[in-house]
Amino acid sequence: MRALVWVLAAAAVAALAIVPFTLSPVMVQFGISMLLFAVLAQGWNIIGGFTGYASFGNSVFFGLGTYGTAVAMVQFHLSFALGLVIGAAVAVAFAVLIGLPVLRLRGHYFAITTLALSEAVAAIISNLDIAGRNQGLILPLIRGDTMFYELSLGLMVLATLTVLWLARSRFGFGLIAIREREDAAEVMGIPTTRYKVMAFALAALFSALAGGIQAYYLTFIDPASAFDLSLNVRMIIMAVFGGAGTVLGPVIGAFLLSGVSEVLASYITGVASLFFGLVIIAAVLFTPKGVIDAARRLPRRGLAYFLDAVRETRL
């Protein structure tokens, strides 16, 4: 059974890898955005799903990755590869530095602090000459959607394998222990501070790489799009809808919700956002444990599954 899952997963990756050669350019572009969202959701999964620290500001890492890559390429004329590395390094360094004080906070305070951090960094960048202030930066144009697609796919696979490793390693168990009861984990001898900072840095790494790809792909960035707050909501809803704290959940959530949102945007153009809002509410209300859990139990419980979900969390 287990083996079958992995064979299927490998087949799915292979199928996804040939998309640029078989499907239309729109599907490739949609694929890039979907895969980058899956990376962001997976990044959030590490800090929010496994460690239980519900960051609402991972957009700060995405934004730093975007800007690190763009500034390196535009202002210092470095290569894209080097730009990606620099963007990721900036974001990881930021995560470590800021993680030490911020990861002492819990619950809502942690969520709001990360949100405020993202906005604060955006406000600072919009005053920095080297980052093009609020006018943004223009990157060179290349006609290479296939490259961006395969890079995004590779990054998504890498992020998922990392989470798979997390789910089986001592480090990962430590994170779960922190999520369940942090003081108990401390007593058990888990180096909670170090583990939390490492999880934060891992989340930053993947988010920043996604940002770097996005920057070169879009050819133009500005603070509003790089530090877009709604990005946070999207990555969290994808992770939660798919199943927070699971290995494949965030990826499945990202694929499903990207699909829904894209179909809405092309077909009921105009009221698409409204419907997406309703989808979010319904998804959280009825499948708070994610679609993986729902798929497993729905056949047995039937529609009562949804009622159970609501009953469990109601006042």
Binding site: S24, M27, I252, V263
Partner: peptide
């Protein structure tokens, strides 16, 4: 994993 294929397939058809 089936879900992914469904989405991709669905979109291809839908976006036609």
């Amino acid at each position: 994993m089936r879900a992914i294929k469904f989405v991709v397939l669905g979109l291809v058809l839908a976006l036609f």
